[in-house]
Structure formats: C-alpha cells, structure tokens
Computed example of a mutant assay.
Amino acid sequence: MDALTHSDNAKRGAPERRRPSWDEFDTLPELQPDRLVPLHGRAVFIAPHPDDEVLGMGGLMVRLARLQRKLALIAVTDGDASHRNSTVWTADRLRETRPNETREALQRLRAYNVDVTRLRFGDGTVGSSERALQSQIEHLIHADDVVITTWRFDGHPDHEATGRAAAAACVASGAHLVEAPIWAWHDSAPGDTRLPWGRARRLSLDASTHARKRHAIDAFTSQLEDDPSNQQKAVLSDATLTPWLRPFEIYLV
C-alpha cells in the first residue's frame, strides 16, 4: 500500500475519521475459508503494491495455507514510488527491496508454496494501464479460481484500478471475485453507506494467525521506517496500521 498525499485524500472528499470499534463488526457473517476455496481449488491474491496482500489479506493467506489450498500472488507493481524525492529509498532501491520484503513476509505467514507473478506495472499509474492489466490477469486465472484483491472503491487509485481490472477479468474468465477494503478504512467507518455491507464478511483471526500476520507486516522495513532524507514519516506508521492489526479481516463477497 503506497501512501496517498493529503491533497489526494482531500480530492476524494474523505470525511472526518472515526476510529472503528471492533464490536461494530460482530454482526457480520463469518467467512469460512474452507468453503470460500474448495478442496483442490486455488486462491489468487492480486496486490497493487508489495504489502497490500499482507495488510488486507494476510490472515486469509495463513488460514488457506493451513488448509493446504493452492495459493498464487499476482504483484501488479513493485512499489517503487512509495518514497517521493528520497535519496535513501530511490526507485531503483525500492524495486529491488520491496519484492524481497514480500518474499520474506510470505515465509513469515508460512505460505511457503505461493506461486508469485510480478507484472511490474508503474507504481501510481495503474489506472492508465488498466486494460493491459485486465488482459494479463485473464491469462493468469482460471474459471475455478477464487480471486482476492483490493476493492474497486478503496480510495487509492492503484487499488481501485486493480480491483476494476480483476473484476472484469473474473467476468471474462468465470472466476469468483472477492474484494478486500484496505485504504478505505482510513476514510470510512462502520455503517458508512459507501461500503456494501450486505456483501461484507468477517474473517476472525485466532491468536496464532494474528501473530503471524503482525510478524509478516514487520518484514516491510522500507515502509516502517522514517526517511531522514526528505523528512517523510513512515508509510506504515503506528496510526496507519491500526485497522490492519485488528483481530479480524473484512471481505466483500
């Protein structure tokens, strides 16, 4: 998840934030991973940036790996635009570092056999290549796959473009689509009518799963450290991480 600037959020009309209360999600139906991805089925995670697959979907990865389901990851970008005007985290360094962070994170999730495909679209410009992205996804997924990706109205341009491309590819291929709000939690709250709550399902994370996800997030060092070269605070600050460290994940089915 590459950060948006303050002006980006302002353009999207983000409301005053309210920190969500966990018990407001208690009434949502529980997602059952073993039913979501049947035996011998495959889950294909599509991440706009390195770390999105863990922040929004890491718990589900853990649960599916335990069930010995086939897992694949399509990495849309290498996340090389997360640190603007930085002399420490240059685009070249990020292109090398962030995919390695993903590999380490998958190991920490104990998702050892994930088939990873890197598409290397431009970070921050996925929308301009949406049709090309859709075409590539169509060639990588099958009719009996379950595709899990970022929500089409997530509030981040790359997330939304990825969600739209994946949705169109699923229609064309017959694959089943599941969407995960990620950035949306920073400008919405439980009950916000912009979210399709009728489609929402809660995946509860037991202590072991939650700990693995937390450990996997810590693999993204490039996003967790302040940048002294441009005074940029960490992209994944303690405040930013709050919605992704809850003991559950929310999916739209």
Rank of each mutant, 00 (worst) to 15 (best):
V116L: 12
P15G: 04
A3P: 09
N100M: 10
W244G: 01
M1T: 02
P190L: 11
P15T: 03
V178T: 12
D238N: 11
A189F: 15
D115H: 14
L55I: 02
W197Q: 10
D2R: 05
S21M: 13
S7M: 12
S173T: 15
I137R: 04
D144K: 13
V178D: 07
H6G: 04
Y112H: 15
L109K: 08
E30K: 12
G41A: 03
L205S: 08
T90N: 06
D154I: 00
W89N: 06
N100R: 15
S204T: 15
A239V: 10
S204N: 14
D80T: 07
I137W: 01
R18V: 15
D92K: 12
R18K: 14
T150Y: 00
K70W: 02
A168S: 13
E96P: 00
H186E: 09
L245M: 11
D192Q: 11
D206V: 06
T125L: 14
A161L: 01
H49A: 03
Y112S: 13
E225K: 10
S21R: 15
R12D: 05
S237P: 10
G79A: 05
P243E: 07
Q134A: 13
R42T: 14
S173W: 01
H83D: 01
D206N: 14
L71P: 01
R69W: 04
D206A: 07
S173E: 08
V62G: 05
T193R: 14
R214L: 12
T162P: 01
A216C: 05
G191S: 08
A200G: 07
L224W: 03
H40N: 13
A132N: 12
L28H: 07
R95N: 06
K11Y: 08
L119H: 05
L60P: 02
H40W: 12
P228C: 13
A43I: 00
L119Q: 05
A180S: 14
M57T: 06
R246P: 00
F153Y: 12
L31Q: 05
A165T: 03
C170E: 06
I141F: 03
A175G: 10
R98Y: 08
F220G: 01
R110I: 01
P247Q: 10
E138L: 08
E179M: 13
D145H: 14
R194I: 11
I217C: 02
P20V: 12
T149G: 10
